[in-house]
Design a protein around this nucleic acid. Structure first.
Lengths: 137, 137
DNA sequence: TAGACTTACTTGTGCCCGCAATGATAGAGG
DNA sequence: CCTCTATCATTGCGGGCACAAGTAAGTCTA
């Protein structure tokens, strides 16, 4: 719990806040950029970010307003609306991504060896519900 | 990050919500119960719970309203107001505490061996800013 | 094909909490 | 004794997110 608080605050303050983004904004962009055709359904983001559907709706509202993401409605299933990364979104992610992940790595590397990071990752992965789903960080 | 989300939600939903408490409420009570004379300054709670002063103020507002904590003003330093566990607070903590910590342990024990829990704790403790301060959980 | 159920998403509401600004007290130094 | 700074705490404000309820669309069953 403490570990999470510390890391989250650090990342948030140093890298994202200056650009007006939150950690979840960033992770959403990250997942989109890796997805096929840079687009994902709401439900997919719900699972990947561990938020509720309503949280995702509001998060994407903000991202769309910022011009980083756009809505594309699906032809085969009218219930789903794709969230797709815009050109602008790709660029922003490239700018922010480097310093974000660098900082993240830095925080761990400063404190832990390569092996220890590996161990930690493995241990946390064993916790219930954590195993599946690739993590942006 | 995923690990934290999963655990937190689990604990919150199963044990605390039915009693109208949050995880931070619970941890505050926990720290108070261990403290000398069941009382702590705001700043001490700030550090232990990793919240900001304003967060602690509001949190204690709620606990006081619920009758679990009471304010006692310090004679040697008029700036500080002790937060002290009430009789009612002690009882509530005893009721909730058992099932909460049991569940917490259960979540880890199901997934990790005793040694692994130890390893995990040690690894996380190495992260910057996490080391100092005893954790309620 | 009608009705029941599931799935995908949105909206209203409210809580928790951080940030910035403020007040109040304590201690240090001239 | 009187500032000046550090420390403890609270308040106004806003954002992020969960919960509950609602809508729309797909799927299954008879």
């Amino acid at each position: 719990m403490r570990a999470h608080s510390v890391l989250r605050r650090e990342l948030d303050a140093e890298v994202l806040r200056p650009r007006g983004l939150t950690i979840n904004d960033f992770e959403a962009l990250m997942h989109l950029s890796r997805a096929h055709e840079q687009r994902l359904r709401r439900v997919d983001l719900v699972e990947r970010l561990m938020l509720t559907p309503s949280g995702i709706t509001r998060l994407l509202e903000g991202l769309e307003e910022a011009g980083l993401v756009e809505n594309v409605h699906c032809e085969s299933d009218a219930r789903v609306t794709w969230a797709r990364l815009t050109e602008n979104g790709v660029e922003t992610l490239e700018c922010v991504g480097a310093s974000h992940t660098a900082r993240l790595r830095g925080l761990f590397r400063d404190a832990l060896s390569e092996d220890e990071v590996e161990q930690l990752s493995e241990l946390l992965g064993k916790l219930p519900g954590v195993g599946q789903g690739s993590c942006a960080a």
